[in-house]
Design a protein around this nucleic acid. Structure first.
Length: 580
RNA sequence: GUUCCGGUAGUUCAGUUGGAUAGAAUGUUGGCCUCCGACGCCAAAGGUCGUGAGUUCGAAUCUCACCCGGAACACCA
């Protein structure tokens, strides 16, 4: 017997075809649960298109479907809705298949190679709260892609190139003019000079404000940057040191947040392909000169708004970051065989990426065979709805945020937990932050509210962890008492049925999340199924249940929901502590 | 000014191909611990879906106009 929704849909499509109607069929969970488990709404459009009475058509279809053992009942309601109730056998088979292999609820028939560009930290600058969403959403999307069966390549896309680098080097030069890096006879020898991340964080704002105030200093920084880009030995060696220090610091924080990358490339790596790309672009004859700048016009005939050109080289001769992003596409498509490239940045950068994508297509760096996808996300604001700031008006470091939430979580932990207490608090804090960040639809702005996020009640990461840890605790107790469970053999209560129907809906949720490139539905789903299970948990006592078949079915159910929650939380990049 | 995004319960947000009685969290009120972790569970109240028109069997969803909020709009990245 079949146990998948897609197979049910195929049965309906086949029977519809035998009536002469060749239409794709999708069925959805019923919004009138008292009438059925699922509903098929497709009869009405078909009847309309063919000038038929929808009720009569529905009756013909139902007559053909009635004998399938997958269905318990089928009924027609209203203008032609077909309400479907599944047989217990169908539901039980489905659950036992999930018990054997939870991934059947995730894998889709999609096998693409997707390159993800997220993270985007800047060298010599602090990782602040504005960097959270790119890393968090990007990481979760990567895991989602892998769960459905796609191959991913992830690049952190480090901001390690450009004028700020010149400013920082200039500031170091001002402070330590005698360093060998700045001597004309320097050729890359090792230098006994250490600089810490704290030094860099202190240097950067000073360097940028000095340059802003004094045009001479700015000019000097520009010059250093120009020489750096042409691999001036001293500047280049110093720059490498700065990058290394920065990366090590950033990696630590990403590790705390369960964020990882396959590639730690930066704009400097893209820059290495610049000459090659420019030669190609000139050959393609897409570059024009305008007001002293080198541009690519990216207007299209159907545009109903102004589309400014993509600036490759500014009028002062400096290469723009648009060119860097185009070079990144060049590099990636030359190095890898890709189906899609996904960008995770603030949605305010949409125009920029539209320009870059158009330039890429216009110059045939990419064609229809590679899809460039901009996944803009909303901004995280403070509780007042304005851009998130610290009390004194500065940007809040991501680490400070994590520390604050960790402290708040620690206070709420059971006092009896002394072992690894701080590490557990951090795990909970990461869950609280990540879940709250992934809960709204990707493009929605949201307010960061530390009290709300660390609240233990409601739709929070804390609630999910608590509930999941409790499931695990139950399973551990069962194991300690040598209670075995092989499969679900019966459905005893309404709540169990609701849980099973929610499980049945998972594959659709996963697919929609992938298509929308947003984790919000997965977050909602996790809350829903966890709440349903908690409902079941408070209504029934599993371990003391006297009927053996009921007890083992309930344990198997618990195991499935635990496995599933673990799998879903893992997609969100959230770890589950042993205790909390 | 042009373009895009948003306006749904007191508050924060979901809302599928146009589908039946618009959902959840929080807050409010009231219940539930002899028993697997009460950091839990249940119930109730709470809505002119920004406004007005149109399309049709049927609109929060599609079209048009308007009101309000936010963002982007050539050399900052």
């Amino acid at each position: 017997m079949n146990y998948k929704i897609s197979e049910i849909e195929q049965i309906i499509a086949d029977n519809l075809a035998s009536l002469g109607f060749h239409e794709p069929v999708t069925i959805n969970p019923s919004n009138r649960p008292e009438l059925g488990d699922y509903q098929y709404n497709g009869i009405m459009p078909i009847a309309k298109k063919n000038g038929l009475n929808p009720i009569e058509l529905a009756e013909k279809l139902v007559t053909k479907l009635e004998n399938y053992p997958e269905f318990k009942s089928l009924n027609i309601a209203g203008p032609g809705f077909i309400n479907i109730s599944f047989s217990d056998k169908f539901l039980i088979d489905f659950m036992n298949a999930s018990l054997k292999d939870i991934t059947i609820n995730y894998k889709q028939d999609i096998h693409k190679t997707i390159f993800l560009d997220y993270g985007g930290p800047n060298v010599a600058k602090i990782l602040h709260v504005g960097h959270l969403r790119s890393a968090n959403i990007g990481e979760a999307l990567k895991r989602l892609c892998n769960a459905i069966g796609c191959h991913t390549i992830c690049d952190v896309h480090l901001g390690d190139w450009g004028r700020p680098m010149g400013m920082v080097i200039l500031e170091i030069k001002t402070r330590y003019p005698d360093l060998p890096y700045f001597k004309s006879d320097y050729h890359g020898e090792p230098v006994d000079f250490t600089i810490t991340n704290e030094d860099l964080l202190e240097l950067y704002p000073i360097a940028t404000s000095k340059a802003k105030e004094d045009e001479n200093i700015m000019e000097e920084a520009r010059k250093i940057n120009y020489e750096l880009q042409n691999k001036h030995p001293g500047y280049y060696a110093l720059w490498q040191k700065i990058v290394e220090v920065s990366i090590n610091e950033v990696k630590k924080l990403y590790q705390d947040l369960n964020v990882s990358f396959d590639l730690w490339e930066g704009e400097s790596d893209n820059f290495a392909y610049m000459d090659e790309m420019f030669a190609y672009l000139y050959d393609k004859n897409v570059i024009e000169e305008s007001n002293g700048a080198q541009i690519i016009s990216v207007k299209m005939p159907n545009d109903n708004k102004e589309m400014p050109p993509l600036i490759l080289v500014k009028s002062n001769g400096a290469v723009s970051y648009e060119a860097t992003d185009l070079a990144a596409i060049w590099e990636r498509t030359h190095k890898f065989k890709l189906d899609e490239i996904w960008y995770l940045t603030d949605k305010r950068q949409e125009l920029h990426f539209t320009q870059v994508f158009r330039a890429s297509n216009k110059s045939a760096i990419t064609n229809d065979d590679i899809k460039l996808v901009f996944n803009g996300f909303g901004t995280m604001n403070g509780p007042d709805g304005k851009p998130f700031k610290t009390r004194d008006g500065g940007v809040m470091p991501l680490k400070t945020l994590l520390d604050n939430v960790t402290q708040a979580c620690e206070k709420r932990m059971l006092p009896t937990i002394t072992e690894n207490r701080f590490a557990i608090a951090k795990t909970i804090a990461v869950a609280a932050i990540k879940y709250a960040d992934l809960l709204p639809y990707r493009t929605t702005d949201y307010n960061f509210d530390i009290d709300k996020f660390t609240d233990l009640n409601g739709k929070t990461g804390t609630y999910l962890l608590y509930s999941t840890v409790r499931m695990k605790s139950l399973l551990n107790k069962a194991e300690a008492n040598n209670l075995s469970y092989q499969e679900i053999s019966k459905i005893s209560t309404d709540t169990e049925k609701k849980i099973i129907l929610a499980m049945l809906d998972l594959k659709r949720i996963i697919k929609r999340s992938y298509e929308n490139r947003s984790l919000n539905e997965i977050c909602e789903y996790l809350y829903k199924i966890t709440n349903l299970y908690n409902n079941f948990y408070s209504e029934n006592k599993v371990l003391t249940e006297e009927n053996e078949a009921t007890k083992s079915s309930w344990l198997a159910l618990t195991k499935i929901i635990y496995d599933n929650n673990s799998y879903l939380l893992n997609i969100l990049g959230i770890n589950i502590p042993e205790k909390m």
